[in-house]
């Protein structure tokens, strides 16, 4: 079983569009959307949710006002400014460290499990799909990513799947690192803009750090041919194969607006190119 992650560094370069199309092309796979704080893949895959689970990402402090003697120790020790002047807890600031509980002389503070999101196991016409929704203004997206990848892996093993296809998140931080752990191939989708190149460079560094094999797809490549060449050069310098060039075409936004994976919406040039990309990913090695 191979785990393939679609990733980009910069947001909005076409990650979800590509993931949905690869999901439609690949046989015998499980799909995961790791973008837990702005999940979009479900819009294209139209899942039928079979099971939903609460995700407990950590703990948060709560205070028993009846016990509290207003000594202010909790506020004094909390490094996250979670206590206001009336010693009330701002739960969006609390990091669940439990320091306040330790220092409270009258045991007024309790650490309680915090449901920081939900995750879903679904059926789609493309196969099993796992995605999540981080609660509003909640943290621990990295842990939630690790959780849903774990769930997907169990399903994949159980069903003897050949692939796990994973939609990544933008950036290089905590959810991205959780998405990268144990990946067999990272497909980086970028665009020929100065920011696309800059962000891709950071992702390449991260991927090298984790010693993961990567391949690159350049989306909207004809927007700026000069930058496109720069990307190719950067890839070859880093021993990364460029496996596809997708031209700028309004058909892409049309497919999204119609909530369909591109390869199903049209079978024009771009569809053909994505099929080639899949063949290059799918080939042995």
């Amino acid at each position: 079983m191979k785990q393939i992650l679609i990733i980009s560094g910069k947001g909005g370069t076409g990650k979800t569009m590509l993931t949905a199309s690869l999901a439609s092309l690949a046989k015998n796979k499980v799909m995961v959307d790791c973008d837990v704080d702005a999940a979009d893949l479900y819009i294209l895959l139209k899942p039928k949710i079979i099971e939903r689970f609460d995700f407990i990402g950590g703990k948060k402090a709560t205070k028993d006002e009846k016990k509290c003697v207003k000594c202010g120790k909790c506020k004094q020790f909390c490094r996250f400014n979670s206590f206001d002047d009336n010693l009330r807890i701002d739960s969006t600031a609390c990091e669940g460290c439990g320091f306040c509980k330790i220092v409270c002389p009258v045991d007024a503070i309790k650490m309680v499990d915090n449901i920081s999101g939900q995750y879903f196991v679904s059926d789609t016409k493309y196969g099993d799909f796992v995605h999540a929704k981080l609660g509003i203004a909640e943290e621990n997206s990295g842990k939630l990513v690790a959780k849903i990848r774990d769930v997907a892996k169990k399903i994949a093993i159980e069903k003897n799947a050949d692939y796990i296809i994973i939609d990544g998140t933008p950036g290089i931080g905590c959810p991205v690192m959780a998405s990268l752990a144990g990946i067999d191939l990272a497909v980086i989708i970028t665009e020929p803009t100065v920011s696309g190149i800059h962000d891709m460079q950071r992702v390449i560094e991260l991927i090298k750090h984790f010693k993961i094999t990567a391949k690159v797809v350049i989306n909207k490549f004809d927007l700026n041919l000069e930058n496109c060449e720069k990307i190719k050069l950067l890839c070859s310098e880093n021993n990364i194969e460029t496996i596809g060039l997708i031209p700028f075409d309004s058909i892409v936004s049309k497919s999204i607006v119609n909530c369909m994976p591109l390869v199903e919406y049209s079978d024009g040039k771009i569809s053909q190119e994505i099929k080639n990309i899949w063949n290059k990913i799918n080939c042995k090695n």
């Binding site: 909005g12 702005a38 819009i43 933008p170």
Partner: peptide, 30 residues
Amino acid sequence: PPGTSCPVIETVKHTDFCVLVTEPTPFGLN
């Protein structure tokens, strides 16, 4: 940063106003 999780919250917190940039696609609206 993009998204809605901790880095975004840390950034927008205590700002006077937030401008949300979006685009008219199902992804953008979602």
